[in-house]
Each structure stands twice: as structure tokens, then as C-alpha cells.
Amino acid sequence: MGLFLRQTLTIAAKDLRSEIRTKEALNASVSFSIVILLLFSFAFEPSSEQTHEIAGGLLWIVFAFAGALILNRSFARELVNDCLDALVSSPTPGPALFTGKAIANLVLLLIVELISFPVFGIFYNVRWLSQFPLLFVVMFLGTWGIVVIGTMFSAMTVNLRLRELMLPVLVYPMMIPLLMGAIQCTTALLNGQGLGGEAAPWLRLLIGFDLIFSILAVALSDTVLVG
């Protein structure tokens, strides 16, 4: 178990270090999310009261789009020099490799979200600071779901032609329930309603989704990685 943890963290640290060094995915992802936030301002009246009702939806669509950029890189990074082969032939079990990569993706996507959140608040005049701790919980749960599905599918599509095109097409329909849950919880929080009451079943949905797909991904990681 100690070794499993060490391998998981080694993989996560490796991915984070290379990404922080090059900032390829991070830069693209942050600028992309700001561009989308800007584009939304043309789709509806940004200063209207209506903004509060769709705030959650807006945010999570931005996060899901930004996530695709990060997730695409996750396994593509291993293709250069056939690094993935070296990882798989090492004693690192599939679940450790998968979890390590998922953790790195989670951190990266959370960074993007934490940058775009204040921008969103300023652009759309949404007050969020007082709700931040709970919002962060929702962000964490939602992002973990995006990352679990995304990392798995990144591994599945890594050797394919059209990898970049394939990933979003496969991943977004799969994430719809998760995004719905995250959107409902976020909207409830931004409207000052808390996570009890109407948002409660959605919070449970988020947790359930995360659990089911984490188990599934870990169980199938060796199947995907070893031919």
C-alpha cells in the first residue's frame, strides 16, 4: 500500500511538474475559459437579474470546455518518446497510474477554475466570496467527476488518430448528469440558498456519480492500459 501511494504521488508530481514548466495546457485552458466567458456576454444581457439564474450553467460549461484542453494533454504527454510504455512496464499498477494522472488533472483544472471564477464574478456582477467554502466543495466534486471520466477517456483515445476531436465528443454526453448536479448546486449557492433543500438531491447525485465512475475507472484501468 505504501508503494502504491508513492507511485500514485510520483506520477501526479511528474505531470504537475512538466505542466507547470511548459504551461502549455494551462495557458491555453485559462485563456480559452476567459474567451468563453466573454462570448457569453453577447448571448444574453450580462447585467440582468436573469444572470443569477443561469450563473451555474455558465460556469460549468466553461469548466467543462476548459477541462477538455487539459485532459487532451494528459496522456498525449506520454506519447513523446514512448514514455507510456516505460510507465506501464514498470511495477506501477494501472490504478496507481490512473489515479496519479487524475490527481494532476484535478489540480490543474482547479487552478483554471480558481482563475476564471473571479473573472466571472467581475464580468457578470455575481457575488460569490461569502459562499466560497461551499462553492469550493461543489467545484471539487464536479471537477473530480470531469477528471475521472476525462482521464479514463484520455487513456482510451491516446493512440487514435483524431484524438483531440474524439475526446470531447465522447466525454460530454457522459458528463451530462454530473454537470447538471454541479450546475444546480452552484446556482443554489450563488443565489444564497445553501446546499440543503432543493439542491440536496443534486449534491447526492454529484457524490454518487463521482463514486460510481471512480470505482469503474480504477477497475478498468489495467484493461485500458495493457493491450
Binding site: T157, N159, L160, M166, P177, L216, L220, T223, V224, G227
Partner: peptide, 29 residues
Amino acid sequence: MLRSAIDDPTQRARIAAVLSIFAFFDVPI
């Protein structure tokens, strides 16, 4: 779509099977 992008039939079968299982768990949710 995923199937059409994989050339080796054995790899195609394996990856597609994983996707199908994921999709099936997603349907009730």
C-alpha cells in the same frame, strides 16, 4: 465513432467494450 478510429480489431474490441460499460452505467443516471 470510437470504433471507427481504431485499426487493430483486438484493441478496438477492448477499448470499445470499456466505453460501452461506462455508457451503460451512465444511462440510468
